[in-house]
Computed example of a mutant assay.
Amino acid sequence: MNHLGDANLRTWTLRFMALLAADTQEQLAWLGERELETESVVEEVELLCRISEELAERGAFEPKNLRDLQAIGRHLGEIDAACRAGLWANALATDPAWDEIRPLARQFLLTTLGYWRQPLPRPVRPHTGDH
């Protein structure tokens, strides 16, 4: 890893994978009152999966880690537009794609870090515009 940006992208990928790997109840608790759109989650993870190959070429990930990220990217690509609409909390409860992605994220973390259970990222506070 020769770029500070690579280290940040690696950290962001690991944090997002920890969130995807968590049990549904943990994900819902993490979401709390946040109204996170499914489309935003899908786009963010698809982006991380797309750039993972380049990150591996630069040493941020091992090539063996790519298989799980690529599988996650393929599953996300199969989620149709209707299932991408709405809140992620609702999708977690109704769309089986997230149940298929969860073990892939766990395997990625297991391969990358040796243990899939990781602390969930600190939630970002919603912007209120009251500055």
Rank of each mutant, 00 (worst) to 15 (best):
Q27L: 13
E26T: 07
W12Y: 07
E53I: 01
M17A: 15
R125Y: 03
W30N: 12
N65V: 08
A91I: 01
C83Y: 01
W116Y: 03
L76D: 11
E35I: 04
V41R: 11
G5F: 10
E100P: 06
L69D: 07
F108R: 12
A71E: 14
D68M: 12
E53N: 05
G73P: 03
L104G: 06
R84Q: 08
H127W: 05
F108S: 07
R125Q: 15
F108A: 09
E100W: 00
R15S: 14
D99I: 04
H75L: 11
E62R: 11
G77C: 03
G32I: 00
V41D: 13
V41W: 05
P119H: 13
G77H: 00
L76G: 06
N65D: 08
I51Q: 00
R50M: 06
L9H: 10
E46M: 07
A89H: 03
E33I: 00
G73S: 08
F16E: 06
S52D: 08
F61D: 04
D99T: 08
N8V: 00
T112N: 03
L36F: 09
A18F: 10
A29V: 01
D68G: 14
L92M: 04
P63A: 15
L14S: 09
F61W: 11
L113C: 09
L20C: 10
K64G: 11
A21Q: 06
E57D: 02
D95Q: 00
G129H: 13
L31R: 05
Q25K: 12
L36A: 07
R84C: 02
R74M: 11
E33N: 14
E33W: 14
P63M: 12
A18W: 10
H75P: 00
A18N: 09
K64Q: 09
L113F: 08
E53W: 04
G5A: 13
L4K: 13
A71F: 09
I72D: 12
L19P: 03
L92V: 02
L87V: 09
E100T: 02
M1K: 12
E78S: 05
Q25Y: 10
L87M: 08
P126H: 06
P126V: 05
D6C: 10
E39M: 12
Y115D: 05
E57W: 13
P63C: 06
V124R: 03
E78V: 04
H75S: 11
A81H: 07
A91Q: 04
L48A: 14
